[in-house]
Design a protein around this nucleic acid. Structure first.
Lengths: 146, 146
DNA sequence: AGATATCGTTAGCTGTGCTAACGATATCTC
DNA sequence: GAGATATCGTTAGCACAGCTAACGATATCT
């Protein structure tokens, strides 16, 4: 196998694995009534503290109009709150409600449970390798953004 | 960090990485005018030979009505053809056109190019680790489906 | 003060995913 | 064989995500 074919196969496998992984995880996430983009945005808000809508859009690699609707959906569910900025009234700060934190935690628990079931069959060393691979994957994705 | 928190973090990172990876790759795939689901379905048809709409829907983990529209889109672009079955006229067989094969190949090349750029900055050993991680990821996803 | 830039929203488009319901065809049962 | 039942793909109708273009409100620069 040449180096080129190797990279091609890696790209293909990565693409396919990502698609199918998300489809599987979405089934669990559905139990919380939240779509993947909403869950992802909520996660950023919960762990990344309050931030403006534009910052959130950039963090999620999405255009502002898309984020407006995601936030509107989250707000309607009572998971997030919009707050005006006293110093710059064009800005809208988004922060998580306590319900939002609870829902996110519950969703994580569900996902972890499913993933844990799949992972429990792995050898300890394989698990470490997977963890390492995920870390590298994150680096790759980050470098693609730059 | 406890073992539980560790698994939780891994699940979260995987989830997030998969979402962001797909968003990045979709930008390249857009150049071919094909969305991720269409590209994925086309890939199955090209490499998996002719198959019925229902089989394709199952392979892509999607309900038949969804696949009907994906195939309709692909057919309108001339990438795929519907063929009736002489023995069972309820069935519709889907097969790739030569244009479909070309477009898929071109899309792969684009994706690989982008991924290769991100990966070329990695050490040779890191690349091997990533490859190993992707293999494990595929195993995990497969075991989740079962 | 007036021009310019920035932020978030609205409007309108395409596409993906679902369920429910339907027509056409096969198959099973009597 | 005829009628009930099952299967396959499609259509209709809903919710959501993604985009661009255009706008109003507010800040900032000249």
């Amino acid at each position: 196998m040449t180096k080129g074919e190797d990279a091609e196969a890696l790209a293909d496998h990565l693409h396919s694995a990502a698609i199918h992984l998300l489809r599987q995880l979405r089934k669990e996430d559905d139990a919380s009534g939240l779509s993947a983009p909403r869950l992802s945005a909520l996660s950023v808000v919960v762990f990344g503290g309050p931030l403006t809508l534009g910052e959130l859009a950039r963090a999620e690699q999405v255009k502002p109009p898309t984020m407006t609707r995601i936030v509107t959906g989250l707000e309607r569910e009572g998971l997030v709150k919009r707050k005006g900025d006293p110093h710059d009234r064009r800005l809208t700060h988004i922060e998580a409600t306590s319900k939002g934190q609870k829902v996110l935690t519950a969703g994580r628990a569900r996902r972890v449970k499913k993933l844990a079931a799949a992972v429990s069959r792995m050898e300890k060393e394989e698990l470490a390798e997977l963890r390492r691979g995920v870390q590298l994957l994150r680096d790759v994705v980050t470098s693609m953004r730059g």
